[in-house]
Amino acid sequence: MLLTCPYCGLRDQSEFTYRGDANARRPSFADESIEAHAAYVFDRENPSGLHEEIWNHTSGCRNHIKVVRNVTTHEVVSCEPVGPFAKALKRGRAT
């Protein structure tokens, strides 16, 4: 499997680390409730078909990307940058 790092380009999956469901959103920093955190940490929709997930280009630029992947076929549909430089990368400006 190959993933497109928005910065480094198309690379082998072995350069990336899987970081899980992109829809697991941490509650706001002010929130200290057990319910909200338990839902964030433990509960997963775990869909078949399209799955949004976070990968880290660990052996490359170490940026995170949001990958949309069909987990039934392993087809990679899209790779989007996340993180501080996401906007710059989305505009096609590597830096």
């Binding site: 680390t17 970081r19 976070i54 880290n56 940026n63 995170h64 996340v82 993180g83 501080p84 996401a86």
Partner: peptide
């Protein structure tokens, strides 16, 4: 390192 980077990039990207 991965834990810190994840939180910096994915959870709190506005922190410098």
């Amino acid at each position: 390192m991965e834990h810190l980077e994840y939180h910096r990039d994915v959870v709190w990207p506005d922190l410098k």
